[in-house]
Design a protein around this nucleic acid. Structure first.
Lengths: 213, 213, 213, 213
DNA sequence: TATGAATGAGTATTCATTCAT
DNA sequence: AATGAATGAATACTCATTCAT
């Protein structure tokens, strides 16, 4: 109950303000996109004054880097433990995709911003790359396992992992952020996830085990 | 039928200028990205004056829409004929991916611009969607065929087609445009293509026929 | 009369605009000081729009550097010829001071700006140093002559030259720009000049020859 | 006489804080210049919080005025007594210049600030003028004496005094603050002083007595 | 007396677009 | 058809100053 060392009431005013700004940024960017978001939009959404922004962040890019960093921490914390799925890799794929999908939805603004600025900002690109590393490694690991039993021949595991994470991320971009192929209709989460899971399992030549949503 | 004033054999000065501007735009955008490209960069690259731009295009967006339209025509014209691969769908996948990869490379600036602005510009997004339709239809057609023989169960063909084209496009974005996962090394065309082909064939559960590049 | 090669009518529009901006800057800076002069003050004084400024100058500092450069050219062009005063160095001092005083008045804004920003801008400081070189050299030359005949002993000619030009420049600053010691009354040009001339002649231990104002 | 509440022996906390701020300001301004010094730089240098500043000074200008006032008191307190040099005015000049030079060095930040802001701030200009009065009067007095014995003819004593103090102040500015003419080398104190003393003695047409430093 | 978080006015700069020539 | 000078709207960022604690 009580935290003797880090009293929850002792969250300083400044920490609170910083968190408010980050939250406001996430919301505004999710709605308007990173490029179209002005500093004043963020601070107004947080009910603060524009100068305050610069007490906490050097500029919009640094703020966004903070958002992405939080996103990365969140992804690490919530990744499924492969140890729980040792004899059912298809289920691990499903669990991974489901987890990612929801995490990405919670960080919709962050993902949107990554797609918007990775091409024009090398640091943001590097942040995105960092974010992807665990997912790629996991796919590559699975491919190596398959290759050890004679499947998934003729592909470089790392490159294929890079591509398969791309399958997921572009799916999210397409159906959830950009509404590229279905601009007028929502693609329901479960349908999106089901499609991605099935394709990834096929691509990895995994016979799906018993799966429950 | 015949145009007395504008002889088709003599490309008018105005047509030439317009073509010059489009070419210049393609080159500059491929290098600098659409967002970072200013009107003056384009006209200077074309050796013209800035005011001239507006005699040919309403603004940067309209110019880019023209580029994308040309890109779409090019894609249609060069798409492999499914009739040539009736009994080797795996080879059709390979031919399709190979063709697309090289077409996309020729239109690197266009693809870059699509990724940059689809999120902030609905018309550009719609243009991109148009571009994707044929590819998605082709993947969806293949999936339906597979489902008819009991394969590729449990996926919506159109949605899966949308995802699989995404696998390709994100691969191109990742390795060729953004250098997201391999910022310091080139991913060679043949390796990129091979990876995508293999994954797509697996995902579509196609036993690859004997194919030679 | 006629200039066959550089037709005066051919002063381009852009050259005219640049000259207008420089003139406007000189006037505004002379009135308000360099630090207090905003870009918009200059362009408005020139009856132009603010964006135009940046077609001609990178920023306020570069504009001011151009002003100072012009000032330097002007000083060089109008410096009295020592050859005309070989046997009356006192008269040369007088002619020099008179010339400088009027040149400085014509470039009041420039001098004001130098005093304002030399301390905070190394490039401006260097420009000012350049401007001073001829004057210092001339004083130092005179001191060396005097030392050759046993006068002006015990001073480093260059350092003394630096100091004596300072006597002049601070006088101009004091009485003409800052109104430091006489804030409420004008110090008439001839009185200022007379004081400076007399002091400089004394300091240089020159018996003044017959001088006419 | 005695202050029952504020015992002179115990410097009050508030007096100490004020003195800390003044000292910090002097150091920071000497280093960075008055214009480039922000309130926060001063209070941080003093290890205090920014809000505190306004409990002691209305704004930066008032603080600087306090500095200048202290400077002025210091100058008055340390001025050489003319009575000690009645029969060697050249030595008085030397003693005066030596004293001023060292006083100015101790108050380098103050002098720097005066040069920086006298042009843009009338009150600061007036403070500077006040500071100069004693020095000018002293030079003017000497000139009047000389004129009484037929020397230094043809100059207004007050104006000349104003100019001669300028010779000193610009020398200090040039060699010690701005490093205008010798940006890359130190001008040693004794050389600077010697040059100024010699020039001033010449200008005042004083045969220097036997003086040793 | 002291803190430091918060405010918001002020300004340089860019660049798409227009238009007189 | 072409030029390029001119326009002016839009926005990030700084920093003196205030005020609740």
């Amino acid at each position: 109950m009580n935290a003797p060392e880090t009293n929850p009431r002792q969250i300083s005013k400044s920490e609170r303000t910083r968190a408010d700004l980050l939250l406001a940024a996430r919301e505004v960017i999710s709605r308007d996109g990173l490029v179209n978001t002005r500093i004043v939009d963020i601070v107004q959404h947080a009910g603060r004054s524009s100068g305050l922004f610069y007490s906490y962040f050097k500029n919009k890019r640094e703020l966004f880097a903070s958002l992405v960093e939080e996103f990365g921490d969140n992804l690490s914390d919530t990744a499924p433990d492969p140890g729980d799925y040792t004899d059912d890799p298809a289920a691990l794929v499903r669990a991974t995709v489901q987890g990612l999908w929801h995490r990405y939805k919670e960080h919709r603004g962050d993902v949107k911003g990554l797609f918007e600025t990775a091409l024009t900002d090398d640091e943001i690109r590097a942040e995105w790359q960092k974010l992807r590393k665990a997912g790629i490694r996991s796919f590559a690991y699975r491919i190596r396992k398959q290759q050890a039993v004679g499947l998934c021949q003729g592909m470089d595991p790392d490159l294929a992992g890079s591509a398969l994470l791309g399958l997921f991320e572009f799916g999210f971009f397409n159906w959830e952020i950009c509404r590229l192929d279905y601009p007028d209709a929502d693609v329901p989460d479960d349908q999106a996830i089901e499609t991605l899971v099935t394709l990834l399992q096929s691509a990895l030549q995994l016979a799906p085990g018993r799966t429950e949503t």
